[in-house]
Write a protein that binds this DNA or RNA. Structure first.
Lengths: 227, 227
DNA sequence: GCAAAAGTGTTGTTCGTACACCCATGA
DNA sequence: TCATGGGTGTACGAACAACACTTTTGC
């Protein structure tokens, strides 16, 4: 293997999902330079020479949102010959999930502008980012059916109605309230916090918390979640 | 983005599965050069400058086995800083499935030696190939539960017992014969060929064929298979 | 007391699982 | 005729889907 073989560039791109009580959103940045200047794009960056792939994603997430320990999941690598006008750039696509309330735009971010967009209203993105986005959204749908990752999108304490709305939004279908609650309780990864909603003009809902330990235990014994 | 950013190399590696009536196998090559000279390794190659990722995999498969149109599936990209001693090499891992009877080692292959190994008896492989292999094997297990890809590993015409053995081997569990057949027939992607086994010293089994069209139709209407 | 969302149980149906015997062939 | 694997149906229990009314709060 000669030096001639080290001619490529590799980046990561990240489909960052958030959820704000009614709507599934994705965080996009507006590009400030060519190519695709002024287009909305997925946040991403070139991988640095001494940086593992996952670390590169963590860095981008941290720079952009200020958050560490964000849920993330490698989805697929895109590398078609013509996908980047400046040369052969491979990109490793991830999706990640964050609690939208925790997020604050980092003003020193490399992007000129970052904004949440409804996943149902995404226009034409830079590069092949529409394709990447579609793939990652599908992967979110597949994952959410089988792993209890929905919690990553909700605040620490949440009501069962909020959880149900989240699942209905992502999976684009409705659930029967009673059956949904039965199923969730059967899974057994929720803890009743003892708290309730306050100052709502109807019967206040109980607040629950996701129990990471119970989930780990279930995973250990080979449990498979299915909503 | 300056020229300085085009310093990396990208390869594909392929976990090629085959099945020979009792055993799930993987095709490994023996490396003829350093690093890891004389180690068994996953077949793979650097991606060429004008070659899409999938095309690169097809090329490697064709060179090695003579086969085109082999089932293949991108699994994950590995790119840890130290994974390759000669520089920063990312590798996109695929698994693929082929009918072991169709395979003939191409004598002009780039490998010094290629050989089927039982998946249960894999030694220490070159680079991080043990990790890649484990990831791909797990992905095969996940996929086979939910997509009828098992057929890719069997000859054109096969018996239900062969199919059951295949699933039992991959999933490492046993199925009740009657229940297995009920489920397979319910899926409805098998066609009775009208043929039977010949010259077996017991009641000859019917031969079935996988019906690609019926499968496509099911996929179109949003069907989800579950064995 | 009324509007608004929270919360809760039962029943019928479907699906999965467990289980044992006769059949067709070659030797 | 015997050895070998091929092929089939039923009954029970578990899981899932459908469905309506009472409760708690703010105004």
């Amino acid at each position: 293997m000669s030096q001639d073989n080290f001619n490529y560039s590799v980046s990561i791109d990240c489909v960052i999902f958030g959820y704000d009580t009614t709507d599934l959103k994705v965080l996009l940045i507006k590009r400030g330079e060519d190519p695709y200047c002024n287009y909305w794009a997925l946040p991403g960056d070139l991988i640095k020479p001494k940086e593992d792939i996952d670390d590169s994603v963590s860095r981008v997430l941290k720079d952009l949102t200020g958050l560490s320990e964000v849920y993330m999941n490698q989805v697929k690598t895109f590398g078609d010959v013509g996908r980047h006008p400046l040369g052969r750039v491979f990109t490793v696509a991830y999706f990640s999930l964050l609690k939208i309330g925790d997020y604050q735009l980092n003003p020193s971010s490399f992007a000129t502008e970052a904004e949440w967009h409804s996943v149902s209203r995404i226009g034409e993105l830079a590069f092949d980012h529409n394709k990447i986005f579609a793939t990652c959204k599908q992967e979110l749908v597949n994952s959410v059916k089988v792993k209890p990752i929905g919690f990553e999108l909700l605040p620490e304490e949440f009501t069962l109605t909020e959880l149900q709305n989240l699942y209905e939004t992502i999976l684009q279908k409705t659930f029967d309230t009673r059956n949904f609650r039965k199923k969730i309780h059967a899974v057994g990864v929720l803890t009743d916090t003892g708290n309730s909603q306050r100052s709502v003009s109807h019967r206040p809902a109980k607040l629950y918390r996701f129990d990471q330990e119970k989930y780990m235990e279930l995973k250990r014994v080979g449990y498979s979640f299915e909503i």
